[in-house]
Each structure stands twice: as C-alpha cells, then as structure tokens.
Design a protein around this nucleic acid. Structure first.
Lengths: 137, 137
DNA sequence: TGTAATTCCTATTAAATTGATAGGAATTAT
DNA sequence: ATAATTCCTATCAATTTAATAGGAATTACA
C-alpha cells in the first residue's frame, strides 16, 4: 500500500504544478483543498524541499514553489524520496540493495525472480512519468 | 515492501512444487531449508490450505501438497491471498475497491492515474506468471 | 493399544512503522 | 510592531507485522 505521506506529497506537488500564479503556494491552501492535515503536510513539504524538489519562502506571503520544470521531475525520484525503495524486496533494489539474511541463493530464489520483473516494470512507468503528466487535468 | 508472510509463502509453495516425491512435504523440512521460523510458516501454510492452494495430511508422515498443477496457480491469486490487494491504493483496486475519504474527484486525481498504470502492469505480470514459472531452477 | 510425529487452532506479545499532533522558533511583508 | 508563514524537534497513538506459546486433534506404526 502507498503511504499517506507519498499520496499527500504527490497531490501537493501536483497542486503546486497546476498553480498558474508565480507566487509561492501556501501549505494551508493545499491542505484545505486536498483535505490533508496541515501539520502533516508541512513536514512532507519540508522533506521535498530538503530533497531539492521545492523551494520555499518564509514569512508572510511565503510558501512553496517548484525548483524545476514539471517535465523534469520524474516519478522515480519523487517516489524514492517519499516512499523509499521502488523494489518490493531489498535484494532487487537498485538504490538500496541488501542481501536477504534468509535466502541461501539469489539465483534460485523464486521470489527474487518475480520481484525483479515487477520492479523493472514499475521502474519503466516511473521513468516515463513526470510531474507534468500528473498535472494534466 | 513485500511482507515476510508473502515472501515465506511464495518460497514454501515453490519448495513444494519442486519436490518430486508424491508424499506430503512437511513444514519442518521447508522451515529448515528456507530458514523460516517454523511456527510462523505453519500459520502461513494453514492460510494457503484454507484458500484452496494446498491440501494437507495430518499426523505422522503428514504434510502439505499442491491441489492444482503449478501451471494453474497464478500469482494474481497467491498474491491476493498472502499480500492483499495488488493495487497500491484502494481506489484503483479491482477486488477491494474503496473510494478515498479525502480525494474530491477521482478523475482529476494525479495519484489515481499513476497508480492505475502501476496496477495494470503488475497485474499483467502476475497474470502471466504461475507457480510453475517460479519453480524453474 | 500406546507413542511419536505431525497438522490445526487460538491467543498473546514484541517490535516496527505510520499517521498525526503539539508547541514554539525564525523569518518576512506590511 | 504585528500577523502570517515556514521551520524544527519532540512526542504520541494507532495499526500492522512478525513471531512465539501451548496445547488439541489426528495419524502411522510398532
């Protein structure tokens, strides 16, 4: 299951991408429109800022804005930051590889083979989907 | 992330499918070979039996055996029983559909669109993979 | 008929993760 | 100055997951 964190984060990014105004978008506005607990959303947007997706402006009339063109924000990157590894098991993860402590042999492991396929396919989708695609109404 | 339950379950099914003998396979044997806590595995195999994948024989020389040809045990079915919905959000689930309590409109929801793609692709893999495929060494 | 070996069943617990909340510090526009 | 906002840290509650415990029921076989 997709975590709320990721879901909220994606919705927020989309909301910001759709916003025509060139003034920063405020957390409160997004929270209200998307029905997300504001404080929770704050922490998510903070993460996205620290990861280089968003810029922010503090104080009155402050808010968040995209640092890149939506076309250049790929789902691979966003998902890895919000949700963590794309692979369903560490032993088929590109960025977070880890050997299974059980599992005598990866090559004959049936789970490994199956999850490798799933990862490849999901990765393909995420590589070919940008925030711009999500933002199309 | 794939739960241990699912991982163990898949490994156990594969183990049973690979077993040439036509005598039932014992939990203890699988647990030892696959390094799975035996009591935990017991409960998983029980689930798989109740779901119609496995038959069992009680008492001495008892154990578990497949009820169908491995070719006819599809990953869609196994994954749904062990891991639950294949979709990452309930609003794109075929078998467990649920409207999101947040989310004003599914059609303009960016998460919905993305997760629909992922589900379709994953489903395609699971539909085309049987236990027989997993069991090939 | 008794014993050992096995599945079956229910309950409990421990650990980890997730989702959310709280309170205020720092910064900025007006 | 004041109000509005992001920023930061800590904490909590709920849920889920992984595992354990103990024994009942069943079966093979000596």
């Amino acid at each position: 299951m997709l975590s709320k964190k990721t879901k909220y984060g994606l919705k927020a990014l989309t909301y910001i991408a759709r916003s025509k105004d060139d003034t920063p978008v405020q957390v409160g506005e997004i929270a209200k429109y998307e029905q997300i607990p504001q404080k929770f959303l704050e922490s998510i947007l903070l993460t996205l800022r620290k990861s280089g997706f968003l810029g922010s402006k503090k104080g009155k009339h402050g808010g968040y804005y995209l640092l890149k063109d939506p076309k250049d924000i790929l789902m691979t990157e966003v998902m890895r930051v919000l949700e963590g590894p794309i692979a369903m098991v560490p032993c088929v993860s590109l960025n977070y590889y880890e050997q299974c402590d059980d599992c005598p042999d990866e090559k004959t492991c049936s789970v490994h083979k199956l999850m490798l396929q799933v990862r490849d396919n999901t990765l393909e989708i995420f590589r070919n989907t940008s925030l711009a695609d999500l933002s199309v109404v």
